[in-house]
Amino acid sequence: MAGHSKWHNIKRRKESQDAKRAKIFTKLSKEIFAAVRESGTDPNTNLRLRMALTKAKAENIPNDNIERTIKKAAGESGSVQYEEITYEGYGPGGAAVMVQALTDNKNRSAADIRHAFTKHGGNLGENGCVSFLFDKKGQLIISRTEDINEDELMLEAIEAGAEEFESDKENFFIQTAPEEFENVKQALEENNFRFSKAEVTMIPQTYAEVTDEHAEKMLKMIDALEDNDDVQSVYHNFEINEEQLSRVAYE
């Protein structure tokens, strides 16, 4: 099955891991809060909460933090209201970009996101201008270890309902339809597989290569967007190979 190399063509990490971890905690806590306010505290009946808890556990957020957030969301009435907004546009060089935000001040979010696009040579567009270039899919990533038989894992994943299976030297990548994500995840967990990442995400249908100059600006734009506390996810079809990345003066 094709397409894995395009699933994770960029792996960028900031120098300060502590600062990044704090950002992740903030974003996931906000998502848990919003999920509880929307549909209650039971993850068995609240799919959004179940997904948020899966992400939180994957990021090793302490259970105490999660429980405090759930209790706070369940106990408060009207003090905080988060609105979900999706922004669409183009990065430098024409790569498609989707930004999912969860905010209590949409005017602030819109201004900040527009600024990030403009500052780095991108353009914020109208709703629908790039969303048709992405498919909503479940994605499960399992780190490769000596005790995992690739053929057996692939067979179990496909039998559980997975659509695609790919691998590289470090990981196994499993793709599902959104409605099959939980079934596949649960089936593999019951067979003692553990995930380094498990989420429903947006997968590009096609990918865009850009010049080195545009690649550098694109990387900086993505970081600026991900650094925004209101931004939950950034999806794009920007593709860069290791050779080009080595040429880009990016820090």
Rank of each mutant, 00 (worst) to 15 (best):
Q175C: 08
Q175K: 00
T176Q: 02
T176M: 00
T176I: 00
A177N: 08
P178Y: 07
E179T: 11
F181Q: 02
E182W: 07
E182K: 12
N183H: 14
Q186K: 15
Q186I: 15
Q186H: 14
A187H: 08
A187T: 14
E189S: 12
E189Y: 09
E189K: 12
E190R: 15
N191W: 08
N192K: 11
N192P: 01
N192C: 07
F193L: 09
F193K: 14
F195E: 01
K197Q: 13
K197W: 06
K197P: 01
A198F: 00
A198Q: 06
A198R: 10
T201P: 04
T201E: 01
M202S: 14
M202V: 13
I203M: 08
Q205P: 10
T206A: 08
Y207H: 13
Y207E: 05
Y207V: 15
A208M: 12
A208H: 13
E209V: 13
V210G: 03
T211F: 02
D212Y: 09
E213L: 14
E213R: 15
E213S: 15
H214Q: 13
E216A: 14
K217L: 06
M218I: 11
M218W: 10
L219M: 07
K220R: 13
M221P: 02
I222T: 07
I222E: 01
L225H: 01
N228T: 09
N228L: 09
D229W: 06
D230Y: 03
D230A: 12
V231T: 04
V231L: 01
V231G: 05
